[in-house]
Simulated scan of single mutants.
Amino acid sequence: MSDSSQIALEEFPERTEAAFWFAHAETVPPHTHALGQFIHAASGVLSLITDDGTWIAPPNRVTWVPAGAEHRHRAHGVTDMRVVYLSPDAAARLPSGPAVLAVSSLAREALLALTTPGSRSEVARSHLRAVVVDEVASAPEQPLHLPEPRDPRLRQAARIVEEDLAEPRSLGELAVGIGVGERTLTRLFRHETGMGYRQWRLQLRVHRALVLLASGRTVTDVAAACGWATTSQFIDQFTPLAGMTPGAYRRAALTVRV
């Protein structure tokens, strides 16, 4: 994304929707917007990062960012980012914090139509925007948030796991490695992430898999890199969280829309 695109992104609340292309590993520094926004990666993968953690949305999901929420982005692979801003009245129907929400085929096509240059009237655009809001606002929140640990001990434990996901570590081994009791580490995971260690590690593995698949790695390679014993186990655990199989997600992420 060029410098001029960066300026446009920062001034975007004066508009209602737009599209931006990001190169691989390109980032947008921390910023806020006056209006809440839906963010969708039509191709590639886009991370939404805040002090509370990271969200990654597959093609059948949309990320919601409320007005005033400080956030930044990172692209994984060449990424086609679509943005739709909502009025305060429409935003009142969405969660109070960042979230990943399911997006139906109808809502996704309406969102893509809104963010593709064309000669649609404002009345038509308003109807499309209403479809997106109606469909997404009624959708359940998806478990694709990876909380950011704050306690130094939990941060240390998380980094150990993140650095080598292919090596499965039990909670007990992790506790010994950072010099705390297993009960203490269990309590820290529950208190700071709202999840047990195994669920948190699964979330981390799925997040990593989303990025690696979008980079073109094969399903088998990604399964091994993220610590799944077999490809079938990877498919079984990835699919309920992402809403699609690893193979389907890989194809969608690598499809460049024009």
Rank of each mutant, 00 (worst) to 15 (best):
Q6N: 13
A8W: 07
E14C: 11
R15M: 12
R15P: 00
A18Y: 05
A19S: 12
H24Q: 15
P29D: 15
Q37E: 15
A41T: 06
S43K: 02
S47P: 01
I49M: 11
T50M: 04
D52Y: 04
G53I: 15
W55L: 15
A57L: 02
N60E: 11
N60H: 12
R61Q: 12
T63F: 04
A69S: 10
A75E: 08
G77C: 10
R82K: 05
D89K: 12
R93P: 00
A102M: 11
S105V: 10
L111C: 01
T115Q: 06
R120K: 00
R120W: 06
V132E: 10
E135R: 07
A137R: 03
S138F: 00
A139Y: 02
A139L: 06
E141P: 01
Q142N: 00
P143Q: 08
P143F: 05
H145C: 01
P147N: 03
P149V: 12
P152M: 10
P152F: 13
A157E: 11
R159W: 13
R159N: 08
E162W: 03
S170L: 06
G181D: 11
R183H: 08
R183N: 13
T184P: 00
T184L: 15
L185K: 11
L185Y: 07
H191A: 15
G196K: 02
Y197E: 05
Q199D: 15
Q203P: 00
R208G: 00
A209H: 01
A209F: 07
L210R: 01
L210K: 03
L213D: 05
A214I: 10
R217S: 12
D221I: 10
A224C: 03
G227E: 04
A229R: 09
F238Y: 07
P246S: 03
L254P: 02
V256S: 15
